[in-house]
């Protein structure tokens, strides 16, 4: 096992993913137990596939669990995610370097 101390987060998205999980749990979208079971199941799936046991793999499992639970309890489907992601990609592509990346008005809400 890796003993040397590693940074808690390798990249900002990992902190953002964990913040989402904790705040959605606090908001009552899912219970701590359901969270642990969903995350645990994804970690077990990764291990069964022989994926590397890294910090990044852990946070990818967090992301998969978040996508599953927001679909189950908030009705955010894969199609919703694909549409919103495309909107973000457009926003990134069209925002000049150094300016904050924002979604256009039409990219929010019932898209």
């Amino acid at each position: 096992m890796t003993l040397p101390e590693q940074p808690v987060f390798d990249e900002p998205w990992q902190a953002q993913a964990l913040a989402l999980a904790e705040r959605l749990k606090q908001a009552g979208l899912f219970s701590p137990t359901e969270w642990a079971e969903t995350l645990g199941a994804e970690r077990a799936r990764q291990a069964a596939l022989g994926l590397p046991d890294t910090n990044t793999a852990y946070f990818e499992a967090v992301l998969v669990a978040l996508e599953a639970l927001t679909e189950r309890h908030a009705g955010i489907t894969a199609a919703d995610r694909a549409g919103r992601r495309a909107a973000w990609e457009r926003a990134f592509a069209h925002t000049p370097h150094g300016k904050p990346v924002l979604l256009g008005a039409g990219d929010h809400g019932s898209d």
């Binding site: 992301l63 908030a74 995610r81």
Partner: peptide, 20 residues
């Protein structure tokens, strides 16, 4: 200029749950 795949997925999910 595009963030990594997981960074985009987090941003996507974040904006959807905030909208809701």
């Amino acid at each position: 200029h595009l963030p990594s795949d997981p960074a985009l997925r987090v941003r996507t999910l974040e904006s959807l749950v905030v909208d809701k």
